[in-house]
Nucleic acid binder design. Sequence first.
DNA 1: ACTTGCGTTCAGTTTTTTCTGAATCAACCC
DNA 2: GGGTTGATTCAGAAAAAACTGAACGCAAGT
Lengths: 163, 163
Amino acid sequence: MKRVTPSRSEFAQLLGRTAQAFGVPPSVGQIYGLLYLSDRPLSLDEIADALDLSKASASVGARQLEALHAVRVSSKSDDRRDYWEASLEPQEVLQKMMSSVLAPRLANAHNRLEGLVDLMRAERESGVLSGEEFTVCQQRLQLLIAKTQQFKTWLPVVERFVR
Amino acid sequence: MKRVTPSRSEFAQLLGRTAQAFGVPPSVGQIYGLLYLSDRPLSLDEIADALDLSKASASVGARQLEALHAVRVSSKSDDRRDYWEASLEPQEVLQKMMSSVLAPRLANAHNRLEGLVDLMRAERESGVLSGEEFTVCQQRLQLLIAKTQQFKTWLPVVERFVR
DNA sequence: ACTTGCGTTCAGTTTTTTCTGAATCAACCC
DNA sequence: GGGTTGATTCAGAAAAAACTGAACGCAAGT
């Protein structure tokens, strides 16, 4: 890790571990951390150099962050390099992540649950599932479905509060 | 995966993948899923058998879930086995997880950030950091700290809304 | 048309995480 | 005390994920 002060490097490491805790690769968190404390946009080579990463990792990591709306890429004229900078306001990043990854995931989960309800009905009819078991399962699945629905409607509100 | 109907097994798998997406081992999610759709508490052997896991995994997974307040363990008299059941009301599980894992993590992050602020001040004084850089970093770190604080105060409210 | 300098892709390696089997521990019964 | 049956621990295997170097593609400059 070159050309970066200890405090910034430590911040990057902290964000790396935090990202990891949420299932995001450490390198991705590190990149965001580096950019967040940078007073100017950085090129891929600078990122890779500062964080001791291969340029390949820097590239995919930065693109992932872009997909999460956590960073922006821009380019100077007369310089073919891409320059990356963090979008400030972390809350906004969170909000974007909620709507762009949590929400679709929720929708998907919802569909699968609905499918399961049907499947279970079929199992009941073919006798694989006793009436007793069937009612319990059905009940709990419906509860879960209701909750995901509810959560979906509250999501925008929560986003607003968190901001 | 024996002694479990397709729909229930699929549900367990779904929860396994979901857990994984949040950085929790799949087996842990699977166990919760199995218990959630069970009409009675299950023993470790039943869990391991149903999910094709070793008893060791079943044991540690169940204990992890217990730590997250997602399951309860009980024992019948005249039977030395432990019996596990999911705590229903998934929202409550979420809420407990927020207060018992998210909140401490937040507090910890907060402390580390404060430490970084000090470290940066030292770097400024020793000239490692230019005045320009220093102000930018300081500013952004403070913003972040403020936001984590804010988030901490809103957490209980969000919990209540989600419920 | 050739070279240079950039970002990206991808196959293979390294690292990390998860899972397992065997050993251990603990309660209970005889 | 010895045997049985359950849970837990732990070292190592297996699997998954992250990362890398080398090759590639592409645009701009010569």
